[in-house]
Design a protein around this nucleic acid. Structure first.
Lengths: 341, 341
DNA sequence: ACGTGGAATGGTAGCGATAACAGATGGACT
DNA sequence: AGTCCATCTGTTATCGCTACCATTCCACGT
């Protein structure tokens, strides 16, 4: 009879049975020392730990994951990490989950058409214990995948009536409306928008437009650039709408601080005075807006808090507080008035 | 006798045996359809694929990984993703590895003392098929871990005589020397350095200082800020060295474009004319340096190429071209002359 | 003395996939 | 017709851990 022999083993990796043998205990006890040390007597634990040290044992989480049906891993999907908008929440989320013993696997979806379903599928193949997604609007295909996977999901950076599961969001329309109100309160009547065409920037734009209308103002220009919106694109866009900006005082809402910076830069070159002739408000409160001169007025959203909150919700769910009500929170925002308004 | 029964199963996840049963084949055939489709007859494959589709089967890579001893996962460790210096290579590396069927798991080490060994250990527990590390200098503890793990390693962004394994590096000292030469060729004799205190920025600084000395110049000021170096820190640092900068023409090398931007901004506020009185060269060629006005002279390093090259080396090794010579390449760099020099 | 219960540890059987073979089948060629 | 080989599919035995229950031991109360 045939006997399988996987002797292709490239080298002899130390495994839990080796440690157990060296410490004179059962493998199960080694496992307990690593996972539930409080259930092992202190001196056995010490002996096991010593064996682990001398053998240089590194537990195999793949095997452990298969057996326990828990990967201790969370997958996070964001469009890009190039923007502080995403790397701040991701970083704080990663830190917080790390403290709780979870690794975060990051996946980049890009802004393009790239099929989110394919990405989610690939990610689910690793059986993450939880998911952090960007935005709150999923295609039916993705919804189906998530539903059958039975994985806790946190969505961030957007809001929706019925999120997939948990949500730590931001009401972009409200942001736009608030910025319009902010400008209106300072006597502005002519408004303009400059920004990226992604879903959330578009929501801010719509909120802004409605706010402008509500305050009886007029939108004299609105120009979109490709997401995520670069400085150079923004400068070009500002040049394009410059004719609308000369002569009369205008208030511009930029979809991100990068776009705002481009607008400020180009305005200076065109001789449009900021903020007297052109007032500008950005979004994101990037380091750049604080560091540049003039420092940019912008909308501050606490990305770090968002990541932390997402982690908190997810950890609560993972700890089994499954039915502890709906987890849906909106992150507050506020306008930081600096030198460009 | 006791019979184990893990009926804690929260729900019935579809597994390979379900698909096999539905398609009327053996599980092994399903596995082959997914991994080596060329070894399965077209109509069997079609039947299996259909079963996969109707059942909504998502393969379990944890189980597959345990069995095949290949996780199809690469771990990447970088200090931060907040800087283009790291997110560019990481992004291109991730893309390239993704095209080859590997997922990249990102881990952030920070710039602090945080024990790299602990992080590497945690990462190795997931049995990655390869590792991408930042820098070329490992502590003995990490070296031991990597050696016993028998995992291909690529180190990037630095250079060393004897890298751990493969290397896609940059000679920072040479960068510093080149910048000194660049300034010297334009008649500068007074030089200054402003930058972060991390290992690679320090290497650039030393190369710059040696270059300055070689050209008979004098270093009139050198100030370091905490890594990674923010705009505001840089502005403050420039104020501190401003007395050395007034009156006589000076050439400043900044350890990153962010630092350079801070210097440019503060110089303008102090009435120090750029570039006539103070010439500035940054490092990294960030979007900011292209987009700002004046556009900053800087050292361009192709981060995307670096990530791609790292992926290429790693994939070659993973494909079994194990002994195909030393994989150690230096990424070229060049100075982009713009408006601040 | 004896039952009771808690703490510590061990034995066994999977978790869900794949490596390594072993058939089965059929066509090409002698 | 018989041999050989290539192609396809199936069977078996792991991969290295952990859940589940069993067992042992000892302190304690009655």
């Amino acid at each position: 009879m045939y006997v399988a022999n996987r002797s292709n083993t490239r080298f002899s990796a130390v495994k839990i049975t080796d440690v157990a043998a060296a410490a004179g205990v059962a493998p199960m006890t080694v496992s307990r020392v690593l996972n539930t040390p409080e259930r092992v007597s202190p001196d056995t634990a010490a002996r096991v730990l010593e064996a682990i040290e001398t053998l240089g044992y590194v537990p195999n989480l793949i095997a452990g994951g298969l057996s326990s049906r828990r990967s201790r891993m969370i997958a996070a999907i964001v469009p890009t990490i190039a923007s502080p908008m995403f790397h701040e929440p991701v970083q704080s989320f990663t830190d917080a989950m790390g403290r709780a013993g979870y690794h975060v696997m990051l996946a980049l979806s890009g802004y393009g058409e790239a099929d989110e379903a394919t990405l989610v599928r690939a990610v689910l193949a690793r059986r993450p214990d939880g998911l952090l997604l960007t935005g709150a609007h999923r295609t039916p295909a993705v919804q189906r995948l998530l539903a059958t996977a039975h994985v806790p999901v946190v969505e961030m950076w957007d809001t929706a009536e019925h999120p997939t599961d948990m949500l730590v969001g931001l009401d972009h329309a409200e942001v736009g409306a608030e910025v319009a109100a902010f400008f209106a309160a300072r006597g502005h009547t002519r408004f303009a928008f400059l920004g990226a065409s992604d879903i959330r920037a578009t929501a801010r734009r719509r909120g802004f437009e409605q706010g402008v209308a509500a305050h009886g103002g007029t939108l004299v220009a609105a120009k979109t650039v490709n997401a995520p919106g670069t400085i150079l694109d923004s400068r070009e866009a500002l040049r394009a709408i410059a004719p609308e900006l000369t002569g009369r005082r205008t208030a511009l809402f930029a979809s991100s601080d990068l776009v705002a910076f481009g607008a400020i830069t180009e305005a200076r070159l065109l001789g449009i005075e900021v903020p007297t002739q052109l007032a500008i408000c950005g979004f994101g409160d990037f380091e750049l807006s604080r560091g540049a001169s003039p420092a940019a007025t912008t909308v501050h959203v606490d990305g770090t808090a968002m990541g932390l909150l997402a982690a908190k919700h997810l950890l609560a769910r993972l700890a089994g507080h499954a039915t502890a009500g709906v987890h849906r929170s909106l992150v507050p925002f506020h306008i930081i008035e600096r030198e460009t308004s």
